[in-house]
Design a binder for these strands. Structure first.
Ligand SMILES: NC(=O)c1ccc[n+]([C@@H]2O[C@H](COP(=O)([O-])OP(=O)(O)OC[C@H]3O[C@@H](n4cnc5c(N)ncnc54)[C@H](O)[C@@H]3O)[C@@H](O)[C@H]2O)c1
Ligand SMILES: NC(=O)c1ccc[n+]([C@@H]2O[C@H](COP(=O)([O-])OP(=O)(O)OC[C@H]3O[C@@H](n4cnc5c(N)ncnc54)[C@H](O)[C@@H]3O)[C@@H](O)[C@H]2O)c1
Lengths: 224, 224
DNA sequence: ATAGTTTTGTTAAATTTTTCACAAATAGTT
DNA sequence: AACTATTTGTGAAAAATTTAACAAAACTAT
């Protein structure tokens, strides 16, 4: 990839990056259905956004469709891959092989060529040494060693809340480049480590808020 | 709550709603640590945002701190609750009591007064009738009945991808008001149903993208 | 051929969200 | 009492993101 192309992609809006991942997910499904082309309004419908938004995103990544057939699904998938995926692939580890950790491995395993969960870590002797979908669970004590040997760059944290801070530190010390924290305890990382945090309760409470608002609106109308 | 106050809250930015939920989560932890007051910059640090952002959000909800002690944690929690929570409480059901469904129940159970998971649904006879953290798993065939009897307003979808569309339809038919879809298959709902979708792969790919970018930047510098 | 329809690509405008910048208040210190 | 250091609250500016609007292209049907 040329330097200029990369510089362009680097400046893609964060929201666009997220949507590209979602487009690809949708496109892969469409491809399975033997569809060859897709219109911006079709993608938009699937993603609950506007067709302009889709076209804008594709414009930003420099991909052009054909005027009457829309976008070539196969091509578009490849263009998106060129942007999001890393040539050599990126390895991921899950720390905390409990319910959520195992669920994630089950879900993610084999879904993406260039992004693989290659190791799990736990402190529970019963879990250490076990295999989940081909992923070995290592002793968390050996984290640094395994992360460096296996060239792991991203860590997903799914340990009990109380262990969150210590785990984040361990990952950082092991030289991890990115962390995805699924515990409800926010962590601090040096600025050279990219961090995303997600708490299901936030999303659930958001849904609850808008449901509540809708209810109150209806009550009000009913009173009149 | 007065009509005007409600009208104000209704127009809170979506992002603010999300952050309020996160602030409360952080505040509850602080409260446990016997802290009474907190500054905007302290909240900001925990949430990885700027202090102005925090103050702006609190301004929008009309809560004022004291000039030299910051915000009263207890009070602020209550004010946030007044906005996000529903007086009577809201009941939630999980459809699909597999790994992820059970993990969510384990995680969420008892965490919030006004938001409770009160039922699970599955089609697997082995799961039907079981209890997870006090939550009964019902036969998905009885969904409409249970949802109406138990006054359930929100449904969380954690069924296998292939069942997603059918499940969403079932929930809508049962009169659900909000849906949180954790499967990677986007669903369509009528516009009176509030929908949130979340896919872990999107978040993971976002982390991977920025890690990749950082790597390429470093390679470039090294070459020189 | 011509008219009508549909869809892309993009400039410009609008909207939403975040940040800047600073006055006002409060407490501690000299 | 004057000075210094903090911190809140907020109008105004900036930045990020989305939407509107429409020309140009490409196909269909007449
Ligand atoms: N379950 C959910 O749906 C859900 C949702 C959001 C967040 N979370 C959070 O994710 C985390 C995990 O949830 P869960 O349901 O999988 O819990 P779990 O108890 O099933 O799993 C935690 C695992 O971490 C291991 N562990 C403990 N200390 C460790 C350490 N220092 N290093 C490595 N491994 C360690 C435990 O042995 C266990 O296997 C919790 O913090 C929870 O709050 C869970
Ligand atoms: N596991 C993860 O981390 C993860 C992450 C993101 C998304 N997802 C998605 O969440 C879903 C569930 O994942 P999982 O790991 O819990 O899978 P799972 O197979 O463990 O659980 C699915 C459950 O749904 C039940 N079920 C099947 N059809 C049903 C129906 N029509 N009505 C009600 N219940 C039904 C099954 O009996 C099973 O108990 C999948 O779509 C998966 O892609 C999972």
């Amino acid at each position: 990839m040329s330097k200029n192309a990369r510089d362009t992609f680097k400046q893609l809006p964060h929201k666009t990056i997220e949507r590209l991942s979602q487009y690809r997910r949708a496109l892969l499904i469409c491809l399975n259905n033997n569809k060859e082309h897709i219109f911006s309004h079709e993608i938009a419908k699937i993603q609950h956004i506007t067709p302009v938004q889709v076209r804008r995103d594709l414009m930003l990544i420099g991909y052009s469709g054909t005027l009457r057939r829309g976008y070539n699904i196969r091509e578009l998938i490849d263009v998106i891959a060129e942007i999001i995926d890393s040539d050599q692939g990126i390895n991921v580890a899950i720390v905390g092989m409990g319910n959520l950790g195992r669920a994630m491995i089950n879900y993610f395993s084999g879904k993406r060529h260039k992004l693989s969960i290659v190791a799990g870590f736990d402190t529970n002797p019963d879990k250490i040494g076990q295999l989940v979908k081909g992923v070995t669970c290592y002793d968390a004590l050996n984290m640094k060693e395994v992360i460096q040997n296996e060239n792991i760059e991203i860590g997903i944290i799914t340990v009990p809340v109380i262990q969150t801070t210590a785990t984040a530190k361990q990952l950082v010390d092991a030289g991890i480049k990115g962390i995805l924290n699924y515990t409800p305890k926010p962590v601090e990382v040096p600025e050279n480590v990219y961090l995303e945090e997600y708490d299901m309760i936030t999303t659930l409470e958001k849904v609850a808020f808008y449901v509540k608002m809708e209810n109150e609106l209806k009550d009000e109308l009913a009173k009149k």
